[in-house]
């Protein structure tokens, strides 16, 4: 339940404790332990970038194996790039960009191409959204009990 229903009230950990039948202090202790174990990456908000006035996109580029290190370094240097994966295709490097507008996204892509000597990067912004499911069916108890 802490995965998507964190109580937004004055004393959220007391509210969680009430649901679980344990004390506020115990909730805090358990959460500290779970966080330390690395099972929880972060406990906070996840925002809709568009609602904050940002634009986002998915990009791909072909990078020859011997240029990969330099390319990854150039791409990952931007805090605007949150996900970056190698995938098995001619376009072998796939990453997401979130920035305060499409113009800034273009600038970032040109900088990466220049820095790493790769490209052209293909830019594939969503035209239509059919589904975005943020809550995968993870066992809540597993999360709370570590």
């Amino acid at each position: 339940m802490i995965q998507s229903r964190f109580p937004v009230t004055e004393r959220p950990y007391a509210a969680l404790g009430e649901q679980l039948g344990i004390s506020e202090d115990e909730v805090i202790e358990r959460l500290e332990a779970i966080k330390e174990s690395g099972e929880i990456r972060r406990m906070g908000a996840s925002f809709d970038s568009r609602k904050l006035g940002y634009s986002s996109t998915l990009c791909a580029v072909h990078v020859p194996e011997d240029m990969l290190d330099r390319a990854i370094e150039a791409i990952n240097a931007f805090h605007n790039i949150t996900h970056n994966y190698e995938r098995d295709h001619y376009y072998n490097v796939w990453f997401t960009v979130i920035a305060p507008g499409p113009k800034r996204i273009d600038e970032i892509l040109r900088e990466i191409e220049d820095q790493a000597g790769i490209g052209p990067i293909i830019n594939l912004p969503a035209l239509r959204l059919f589904k975005i499911q943020v809550d995968l069916p993870v066992l809540d108890e597993q999360v709370v009990d570590g």
């Binding site: 937004v8 996840s46 609602k51 999360v143």
Partner: peptide
């Protein structure tokens, strides 16, 4: 609460490591 209602906040809570689960 307002941001949760209007979708500015998509999710509020713990982000778990799916791979580990």
């Amino acid at each position: 609460r307002e941001w949760q209602e209007n979708g500015t906040i998509r999710r509020f809570g713990a982000m778990v490591r799916h791979q580990r689960l």
